[in-house]
Nucleic acid binder design. Sequence first.
DNA 1: GTAAAGCATATTGTATACAATATGTCGTCG
DNA 2: CGACGACATATTGTATACAATATGCTTTAC
Lengths: 221, 221
Amino acid sequence: MARIRAKPLHAQARQAVLERILRGELAPDTRVVESRLAEDLGVSRTPLREALMHLEREGFLKLEPNRGFFVAPLSAEEARELYPILAMMECEALRLGGLPGTARIEYLGSVNERLAEAAADSERAFQLNAEWHTILTSGCPNRTLLKMLAGVRRKMYRYEWASLPQAARIEAAAEQHAAIAFALEQGDADGAGRDLQEHWQTELDALLPRIGASADSSGGR
Amino acid sequence: MARIRAKPLHAQARQAVLERILRGELAPDTRVVESRLAEDLGVSRTPLREALMHLEREGFLKLEPNRGFFVAPLSAEEARELYPILAMMECEALRLGGLPGTARIEYLGSVNERLAEAAADSERAFQLNAEWHTILTSGCPNRTLLKMLAGVRRKMYRYEWASLPQAARIEAAAEQHAAIAFALEQGDADGAGRDLQEHWQTELDALLPRIGASADSSGGR
DNA sequence: GTAAAGCATATTGTATACAATATGTCGTCG
DNA sequence: CGACGACATATTGTATACAATATGCTTTAC
């Protein structure tokens, strides 16, 4: 009832396909046959193709001319490139937003507590972790930056999802979150930035072994 | 003939439309009627729509549901957001690439000289300026970052184009370029980064009055 | 004279049909 | 036995046809 105006099919299709990709339901390197997927989703190929082209532009699919779409593979190389970008953007967003007020710092704390408690429930922890970082950067006045940040995060979600069931990592993440929040509380913006950088480095280091990377990630720092 | 494989129509159409937008041939806020543009380009609506959706995703068009595509307006607000992002990304790319060798520094110098000489020829100066920044960041090993950077640059080109015919600014830019290159030559990466930030701030300040902005741009620093 | 309603038109959104290209199979030739 | 080529099939790329929605104009009621 709520929505007066139905979303166009190509938008719905995009969201549906994206969810399948993020959840790994459509595994990396899987070939996407338009006609089959279209029938599966109950739409025709036209809006589906628009959705697929959209996802290709976002990096979730690759399009080989005259051969079709394939789910983009997860690669250690991309992860090693993505995480520093994320760190850079979040740092900048944090900096531009200035020091958060006590209300937001408390909000961060409460979400982080729930995150620590949700260590057993990977999917919930995944959500809370995403929420924490969103809140952290929500003070940034640069909307364009936040949009780009959201795009990069979506790409990262696939990697996070692939390395989900690790309770130990969730606790470690929560600890680092607390350290960042503490620095912010002390008015130490630079320190918070450094901790944030370190946090993402830790995340990356924890991720790489799980997607079959042998080399380390120290190249970019 | 050279090309074995013809590019798909949707890709050709995208490029053609993008060029019209960047050149201002398709002015901001212009309504884009699919059937007319399709006939004009000599393709059907299907690949054209794919091209338009692509451009919408890149921020060059807006899509109002059931009303069609419009060329995205140039806004002082977007410019104020875009330029700091560009500065951030170029700084990071420069940092990740490490200090460039003498060969690349000389290359920067030669392009910058040609840029200074081309002050009268706006379009050529525009090209050379773009080339200079591309060279500056070409040492960055993070391909993903470079791709994103390219995307942001394309968006910026519209603004640069809108404020093109200013010989004075081109000379000023060339001077700042020289300062950055000099810092790099001295092995002062941090100094180069600061100069680069300042350079983009200068560019933004010069741009804002030309697109009808009254407020200043100091909010984000 | 003005405002609202309904019809006519234009345009987008989606589905289907057709054309071009790639892939796999089978048979034949060396 | 292996490799090459022709044909059959599957799939993508593009064009066209149809449906749904928005827009503008005319008409009519007050």
